[in-house]
Design a protein around this nucleic acid. Structure first.
Lengths: 229, 229
DNA sequence: GCCCTTCTGTTGGAAATACAACGGATTTGT
DNA sequence: ACAAATCCGTTGTATTTCCAACAGAAGGGC
């Protein structure tokens, strides 16, 4: 893990930030100014490195500027639970950064070499907040609302009792999000099983049955839904 | 369901609002002013009534001023999933109010006669935001962060594979929150089973086993943990 | 007191899942 | 091109959960 103070490095990611929900509606120059005011830091992680670990106290709101992260948790017996996959431009850690005495409950690991930008939440509440900060707070609010909905959606999926119900619900949601019955999912089989909270082999068997029944087709992570809503 | 425009009724709940996370740090007069500016509405619901239903588009951020609500969802076969219980002072619906085209995915029902205060989120983003609004946005941010953590915690609990693991995890969390090994839970057996996503009878059996093994004791909704962390 | 409803705990059989192990396919690294 | 590692699908068995039904306990209303 390499620390890099605000400086040249950050400029490389201005264009990335402009695409994010957090900095939506800001011009390049405004983002640069905001980043300076927020005292934004850049950190790089190699593939496999841990960004945050369970029980750690988080003090910064983070944005992924490059790479891929996975939010997950392993229990004492090695059972893994996958919570979410973080892509470029997504915010993470914000819910725990805003309450300093609440430790993080998951692990965040880098699936690829990744770059993380982060800043302390205290800058958002400065009394002399300017227009940019106001915009930032508003964007963060929307971003947290979206994450809230995502978590509620995942709870919904996991609440189903059978593997088939979980699969159909998850795939339906993905299909709707993609706006097509033909779509790709961001997980391999083991990760999907860990996301749904089921056994991988049982899930593979169920997927096979559903294919044989003509409900769907798949190859690797690409799915086609037929009779599923 | 009775609608009551801002007016006398609202004043009765100023003292309630002062205790909430959303209006924390505001004086009575400030809350009254904020409520007027937000165009806050009062609605009452009788026990058993539906406050919001699945697939509905939510346009207001709501606060429970009196009573008890349950956030849940029933599937096609009558299986119920309990998401959360809302007590006086808690905010709900905010995540879906902030994105108008995202329909609600749960039902909110009144467990008792209840009073709900609500306001449109557009007031939070008015360009001429004063100090009170700024404070409100900040409080909402913290409130959503807390809900975010709560949802993540629930996902964690539901991710466990066995009924015993879910029970142990849930009870441990409740015990920690209560700050004591002796505590009460807000659900009866059926509701707890629906919250954990397991069968009620199987859960009762498992609870009985755990009692026989000396791990805990319980009477109704009051639990005592012994050997559980 | 009494009836009625709700809640809790228990049981046994049916169904679904977890687990372990394996072979083949694909990918990665050298 | 080869070896190693990863990923995917399948099978059979063991375990767990679900489901339906029942009985006792507790509480509310009349």
């Amino acid at each position: 893990m390499y620390f890099q103070q605000k400086g040249e490095k950050l400029k490389k990611y201005i264009s990335v930030l402009q695409q994010t929900a957090l900095f939506a509606g800001m011009a390049d120059s405004e983002i640069e100014a905001a980043a300076a005011r927020l005292n934004m830091r850049t950190q790089t992680y190699e593939r496999g490195e841990t960004v945050y670990h369970s029980d750690q106290f988080i003090r910064a709101i983070s944005i992924l500027a490059a790479g891929q992260l996975m939010i997950q948790k392993d229990d004492y017996w090695g059972n893994r639970s996958v919570v979410n996959r973080i892509g470029v431009g997504e915010v993470f850690g914000e819910a725990f950064a805003m309450q300093e005495d609440e430790p993080f409950i998951h692990d965040v690991i880098a699936l690829e070499d990744s770059v993380v930008l982060s800043f302390g939440p205290e800058h958002l509440f400065a009394p002399d907040a300017d227009k940019l900060t106001k915009r930032l707070v508003q964007n963060l609010l929307c971003s947290m609302a979206a994450k809230n909905r995502m978590l509620a959606q995942k709870i919904d999926i996991m609440a189903h009792r059978t593997t088939r119900e979980k699969l159909t619900d998850y795939l339906s949601v993905q299909s709707r999000r993609a706006g097509s019955a033909h779509f790709s999912i961001p997980y391999n089989r083991q990760q999907l099983a860990d996301y749904l909270g089921v056994d991988r082999s049982a899930m593979c068997t169920e997927l096979g049955k559903m294919r044989d029944e003509g409900l769907l087709a798949f190859h690797k992570c690409v799915f086609d839904l037929y009779d599923i809503a």
